[in-house]
Design a protein around this nucleic acid. Sequence first.
DNA 1: TTCTACTCTCGAACACTGTTCGCGTCAAGT
DNA 2: ACTTGACGCGAACAGTGTTCGAGAGTAGAA
Lengths: 233, 233
Amino acid sequence: MTVPPPPWRSAPRRRAAKPVLSQASIVRAALIVLDDEGFDAVTMRRIAQELETGPASLYAHVSNKDELAELMLDAVLADIQTPEPDPARWDEQVKELVRDQIQVMAAHRGIARIAWDIPVPVTPHSLRLGEATLALLRAGGLTLKQATFAGDALALYAKAYAYEASGWTWGEFDQAEAGERGEQMVAYMRSLPPEAFPNLLHVGEFFSAETAKERLEFALEAFLAGLKVLAKN
Amino acid sequence: MTVPPPPWRSAPRRRAAKPVLSQASIVRAALIVLDDEGFDAVTMRRIAQELETGPASLYAHVSNKDELAELMLDAVLADIQTPEPDPARWDEQVKELVRDQIQVMAAHRGIARIAWDIPVPVTPHSLRLGEATLALLRAGGLTLKQATFAGDALALYAKAYAYEASGWTWGEFDQAEAGERGEQMVAYMRSLPPEAFPNLLHVGEFFSAETAKERLEFALEAFLAGLKVLAKN
DNA sequence: TTCTACTCTCGAACACTGTTCGCGTCAAGT
DNA sequence: ACTTGACGCGAACAGTGTTCGAGAGTAGAA
């Protein structure tokens, strides 16, 4: 029972009025929803709503939610610049690249979660990052095989770290609740039986959100120091 | 409109006939479903079906699906034995502990995925493992702070590795398809433009499922070598 | 200009999820 | 023997990703 539009009012010509739907615009909208409302809010319906349309419309430009996720990740990774390898400070460059990856993922809370849902990322910027990492590691004197394995481990750790970090700042608790939760954590650990948990007892203070960066730096430093040892054999 | 049971047939007295519902039995059933049919099959309905009941019945013993996930993880971690620290071979002990964690998670494909959904694991066996790791690292001469950070990194990497490994053997493709996918991978990488991806081009062969164990060993060796370097300062 | 062909849009529906409500039934306590 | 309280669970709700097919709009051909 649809009624034709009244002839005295010019037809709104919606098609031209609102920006055309495209893969890029869908990805952009999805990222906006992700940034504003978090991972759980990124549903096909919510994205469609953002574009003032229905969920079915998205499937003309994106075949899957998984594919959309891949596109989102790639769009985010595009912000990372890859350096020219400098053999004199290759280790610092590797660290920098990992830091950049994590920072970019932190800028879009929840993208790390999405990254885990993608089995093998073969998008353009993923490949670019992979190649750049390999080049740096080779500049450090590692064989291709060693570089491959090291790059895999670094990528894995970066994703894991970013995911955990996004959990801290976007679990289900908002910023205010996070601090409270942290203190509860410390208190709980202190309450453990001392004879069974002599070490864990005092760990609470090292585990706050403030030490997150420090934990990252430690892991990077240790791993790269190890790489230098292995490279000499 | 329920009809009373016919009097000539003795009422089945179901309540006593089938094993009583309990938290432990629910966790057991959930793990069976996970092992047999994978992560996606672990739904409240499927678990209930396994126990010959309805989904609502589970909520009397388990408040959440998240809580159930935590219980499942803890049940799996129970299989890991924690060693007495031996300062002479602490590094080998750390490796062994990480390997055990990964192996146990590989035994229940998909449990790694569940592990990521748990923000901060504070179940009994998680704590036991954490304490054991700290003890080993301290035996290696690390300060408590260093040990905490190192343990965090190792736990993160173990979870990440286990998750990726479970993806290879249980993505959406079954065993036969996995090999095919792997070869497609190699072929695709070979087809990349050589001037832009001189290193990635030759990486395919190192990335098969067969080298998974080798990658793990490399990462462990590098990280622990790095820890030894850092411990001396 | 008129008709056709084709692409894009999108309301409605399907099968599925986790979770809650509340009725009924059962087993033990008084 | 009767009450009581806890547990089992059918049905329903709100939400998910995805598909179908009719409709609208545009562009090209006759």
